[in-house]
Write a protein that binds this DNA or RNA. Sequence first.
DNA 1: ATTGCTATTGAATAATATTCTTATAAAGGG
DNA 2: CCCTTTATAAGAATATTATTCAATAGCAAT
Lengths: 159, 159
Amino acid sequence: MAKLEFNLDQIDYQILRIMQDNARTNNADIARELGMAPSAILERVKKLEQKEVILQYNAKINPGALDQKMLSFIFIKAQDIIGVQKVGFMLAEIPEVQEVHDIAGDDGYLIKVRTTDAAGLVDLMRNSLGKIEGIISTRTTIVLETVKEEQKLVVPTKK
Amino acid sequence: MAKLEFNLDQIDYQILRIMQDNARTNNADIARELGMAPSAILERVKKLEQKEVILQYNAKINPGALDQKMLSFIFIKAQDIIGVQKVGFMLAEIPEVQEVHDIAGDDGYLIKVRTTDAAGLVDLMRNSLGKIEGIISTRTTIVLETVKEEQKLVVPTKK
DNA sequence: ATTGCTATTGAATAATATTCTTATAAAGGG
DNA sequence: CCCTTTATAAGAATATTATTCAATAGCAAT
């Protein structure tokens, strides 16, 4: 793996801003908005993808539409050696687990899970978490309502 | 607001699967993959957007590229009356705060925050959180490393 | 100034998006 | 059963975009 070098200018930032806002904005529109040729934008976007500045494009789907209204965070205490995330990788393989973070403190993980309902959560804990070796204990926090949920980063403004 | 009715069939699920995987997949490609006419796909995608099954399209940007390598979760105990999320809304207005969840238990919130570094986090706590009336206490959990982070939902398969 | 490198433009062509008309099929009424 | 309504899809025609490529503008270093 080569060390990745990001070297972004204001135009890149503007592209990122637009893409964060609507990833399906087409090149022509971006070009018009930035007052440049579509081909130039295409070049830049490709470069951003290739440099892994843009990691992927995803559609945010309404969890309710797929009957996954329940959201929970679970703290997991594991006996992983520091720096080796065996349990972490196994957690990551569970489809309902959207996030797995190795956290400071109680040598553990924090995961974010979506299930249909409470029964689905119990199910997941029994059938998926229960089968992972190395989990010492868990503590579950249930989300009653989500006020905000996005992954937009703060894009630097002109300096 | 009318009660939203989702009524999705297998074709919709397939479209959602494709879109979750790559939101920039074009109509023609989706049509080819599903063996349908592009115009039919266009209709369905528009309908999915309009029914708010697809909420938005976003580009996932490498936090490192924007110098936001630090990720933290903060539990916030607030004196909001249950059901009224005054503090929650104020938290949601902070750009570095990506998520705000109203959680069960200690009448509080769980927020997800991205900053440049520890100094940025301290800064945010002092300058942004510090100015919100109604916050009683906070407890911060720092992420050492993220093993998985996505928002893909489990799309039902054929029944 | 000259060289070397990178990014941009503009034009040409390939590919898509979008609109609209027509065709099909399922559901409900009489 | 026939008719009507509603929803979805196909296909054709046209408007827009994407993509490629050659020419050139900018810039930094010398």
